[in-house]
Amino acid sequence: MAKTVDDALGIALLKRIAAKDRKAFEEFYYLYAEGFGRFLMKMLKQQDWVDEAVNDVMLTIWQSAERYDPERGRLSTWLFGIAHNKGLKILERNGRHREQSLEDYAGEVDNDGDDAPEHYHAAISASSEPERMVMGWELGDAMTWAFSRLSADHLAVIDLCFGEDYSYQEIADIVGCPINTVKTRLFHARKHLAELLARKGFSLPEQGKVMI
């Protein structure tokens, strides 16, 4: 989303929204809400929470459209920052902490993998270690499970970096912390992800060639 929507169009709509133009507000919604809604869906994982968060983001835009300054960053960065903040508030209001997993983290150590997908267990028992590592669909299941175990903070930096292609400066702006914190957080997030995958006998492939 961040890469596909033209900022100039969004900025023009924001100017009209600042003048309380509801038609522009509607156009803005259909242009941008899907993007930050997708981000919120990964963060909150519940449709009704995302509905509420997107609603809150749009209300903030309605009230503060004139506050966006193109000199300070991309429009999508500003929007994702608002979305991240609203998402965290919903998590907190529902008794979740941003440092905690959305799943029952306490049961993870004692009850190893009981809440993993059923076909995941079948695949693990039927496969040898090398096979597990190369079979993409198995790794995909393990990744889904591991991601569900990540905290909102860790999930956000991984998704913003590898899913939404934001720079470290933009991620710092979105999550509202210093650049070094973003780097450290992403390092620990990836480390935690690797540990979770390792518990299920997986690791991220290192074959191939660095593309850049």
Binding site: L139, M143, D159, F162, R190, E206, V210
Partner: peptide, 12 residues
């Protein structure tokens, strides 16, 4: 770098 590259492809 390779792990990061594969993470992009595996991101659920």
């Amino acid at each position: 770098a390779l792990r990061c590259q594969s993470l992009v492809g595996q991101l659920p």
